[in-house]
Amino acid sequence: MSIQHFRVALIPFFAAFCLPVFAHPETLVKVKDAEDQLGARVGYIELDLNSGKILESFRPEERFPMMSTFKVLLCGAVLSRVDAGQEQLGRRIHYSQNDLVEYSPVTEKHLTDGMTVRELCSAAITMSDNTAANLLLTTIGGPKELTAFLHNMGDHVTRLDRWEPELNEAIPNDERDTTMPAAMATTLRKLLTGELLTLASRQQLIDWMEADKVAGPLLRSALPAGWFIADKSGAGERGSRGIIAALGPDGKPSRIVVIYTTGSQATMDERNRQIAEIGASLIKHW
């Protein structure tokens, strides 16, 4: 067993022997301040990774656009098919120029040779490549099948209805392509620590998230040296922004954090800054 596999296998073990965790309302004060600064709703939840206990939450059962955070769930569904012998990570998928959609920095470079399922998941999570996500959605049967996968996990809230990039439209009061912070946090925890996926697939999923290259201005910008984070960000229309993450000190994750916002007129930089400040408060009061 590799060191990384050992780390993920012992996530519940280490967490069980940690000192009790206590909620700190100071972080919620910052979440509410972010709402004021952005002029928009902000949803927040913080779960203990081992027990699933909610440590703090704000608007945990209000719907927010998922945006690209759905790509972690998508690759979880792909990995479940791999575990069941219905898919192979090494299978190569070929596609054409007509398949390319807006923001496809990886797939646009491989029109000639195609990409493997493993490479597509890596591109979808680490670079948020939209064509990679659409190609992977095709392998599982489309958005409705991802929703069905989530329902089978016990998540009857999260739903995907459309493809990239239309799913980022974020129309107010439109339930399409949305989740709730509580539902997303619980589902992410199941994917990373539950028995739904094999140990190898859980490790692969967290490795992809740990290698995320496009979430630097968010929670990662607030992390002290030595902290662990595996995350996936999302951005959408109407001032929408979000991030889902597993993080913790001492090089291992111990909490799940989900943050979503929508309806702001603020710039992307300002949305990023507010999420980073929430992260800084979380870490300060850990």
Rank of each mutant, 00 (worst) to 15 (best):
V106Y: 08
F17N: 08
L223I: 12
R271I: 11
I125V: 12
A280S: 14
E26Q: 10
L247W: 07
Q203L: 12
T27H: 05
F14R: 01
R241S: 06
H156D: 14
G43K: 00
I93P: 02
A84T: 14
S57A: 15
K213D: 03
T27W: 02
V31S: 03
G279D: 00
P172S: 12
L55H: 08
I278E: 00
A245S: 10
D177A: 02
G242K: 00
W163D: 08
S233Q: 01
D99G: 06
H285T: 15
K252I: 12
H5P: 09
C75L: 05
A211H: 14
N272L: 02
M115I: 07
T178N: 03
I54R: 09
F149D: 06
G248P: 00
D231R: 03
H5K: 14
E237M: 15
R59Y: 04
R202F: 03
A77N: 13
P217T: 11
R271L: 12
R176V: 06
D207H: 09
C121K: 00
P217N: 11
V117Q: 03
P224H: 06
T116M: 06
F228Q: 06
V257T: 06
G52H: 06
I283D: 01
D113V: 09
S2M: 12
H151Y: 14
S68D: 00
G85Q: 10
I275H: 01
F13Q: 05
A77C: 14
L199A: 12
R7C: 06
L282R: 01
T139F: 06
Y44T: 02
F58G: 05
E277L: 11
G142H: 04
H151I: 10
M153L: 14
F13S: 08
V42A: 06
A246E: 06
K190L: 10
V31K: 01
L55S: 06
Q88M: 11
R59I: 02
T198P: 07
T126G: 12
T69G: 02
S51R: 07
R92H: 10
E210G: 10
F149L: 08
V257K: 00
S57D: 09
P60F: 10
I54W: 08
E164S: 00
G251T: 10
L19V: 15
L89D: 05
A84Q: 13
V101T: 15
N272K: 02
K32V: 10
K30R: 11
G279V: 05
I229G: 02
I3V: 07
N50G: 15
R189N: 11
E119R: 05
A246L: 14
M153K: 08
G194C: 11
D155L: 01
S57G: 11
R189Q: 15
P172N: 10
A280Y: 10
G142E: 05
S254G: 13
R238Q: 12
T262M: 09
L146I: 08
I171C: 14
L218H: 03
D212Q: 07
L55M: 15
K32M: 15
E169T: 13
I256W: 01
K213R: 13
Q204R: 10
F70L: 05
P181L: 03
V214G: 06
T186N: 13
W286K: 02
P105D: 04
